[in-house]
Simulated assay, not measured.
Amino acid sequence: MASIDPGRRDPLDDFEIRQITLMGRTKRVYVAGTGPAVIVMTEIPGISPYVARFARWVRDAGFTVYMPSLFGEDGVLPGSGKAMLTLARVCISREFRAFASNATSPVVQWLRALAAQAHGECGGKGAGAIGMCFTGNFALSMMLEKAMLAPVMSQPSLPLNNLAGMAIDPADLAAVKARMEAEDLTVLGYRFDGDSFCRAERFAAFENALGDRFIGKVLPDSAANPDAPLKTPHSVVTLHLIDEAGQPTVQARDEILAFFRHRLMPN
């Protein structure tokens, strides 16, 4: 796959653009591929060319990607000023609870419904989902949908004001853990060691809450792409991925794809 020029718009013209209405709310969703469904949830500031590249890797691995537009401008990586403006707008949106340690963001209900619909359309054993940064925690909360079998949290960054917060209602967390125990399911988590947005305290909280149902992977800061537009090591499979064989970030990507394959595809 060609290297990314962060200053160029990705036309996303290899995706079908669908307007999907669930629970009375309509969102634009980019769909591509065949095979079991995987929901790819974007990080701040939106569906950048880097997020789209990851979605294409998922598609090319044999899955149907559903990539909802949740915020920001699709196909571009804006400068830091516009990115901060997007973050500010999202933080005051009723769909998101950026500062709530013990509450599940309302948008997760819509995402659960999307997973159920996508699984019904695509078949397979179930659906998968990956959340990144602002949406990272959502993949775990989506496990209340029975179709969801393969959740991945990449640098989960909520809540913004509590390093050890998990951004999930305690009752939801208990129900998710009970389901994972009953069905022998796990959730994958990824972060960089020096990530200032997703710190060790958050992974420790997930480990304490979920035990061995949470499989957390911590990459060294030296594994992050030094040429990325964001200098702080953060985005494991997007901005800071080094697209070269043997790189830890590529290994993380391949682990995620193998996880989806194991959980979602028929034996």
Rank of each mutant, 00 (worst) to 15 (best):
F63H: 08
E95G: 14
T26P: 00
R59C: 07
Q155P: 07
F260N: 08
E95M: 07
L87D: 03
A204P: 10
R8V: 07
A252P: 05
P45A: 07
R213M: 14
M153D: 04
V76D: 10
I92T: 11
N225M: 02
R53V: 01
G62K: 10
D212E: 14
A116L: 14
T135W: 05
S141G: 13
K231F: 07
E181V: 15
A252V: 08
E183F: 12
Y190V: 02
R191I: 06
G46C: 04
E145G: 02
A258H: 11
C122D: 07
M132I: 11
D14Y: 15
M84T: 02
W57Q: 00
I17Q: 15
H240M: 14
P78N: 13
R18T: 13
R202D: 02
M166K: 04
A174I: 11
E145D: 11
G120R: 07
F138Q: 00
A113R: 06
D172W: 06
Q117N: 14
R112D: 09
E244D: 14
V51P: 02
P78Y: 13
F71T: 10
G62I: 04
R191N: 02
E207G: 05
T21L: 08
V107M: 12
M84C: 01
D195E: 15
T104V: 04
E16D: 15
A61K: 01
A139Y: 05
R199C: 12
S196V: 13
S157T: 08
F259A: 00
V107A: 02
I92N: 07
G124I: 14
A200P: 05
A175F: 12
G75L: 09
N162T: 10
K177Q: 12
S80G: 10
I215H: 05
P36M: 10
T21P: 12
I256F: 05
T26C: 07
V107Y: 06
A37Q: 02
Q155I: 02
F214V: 01
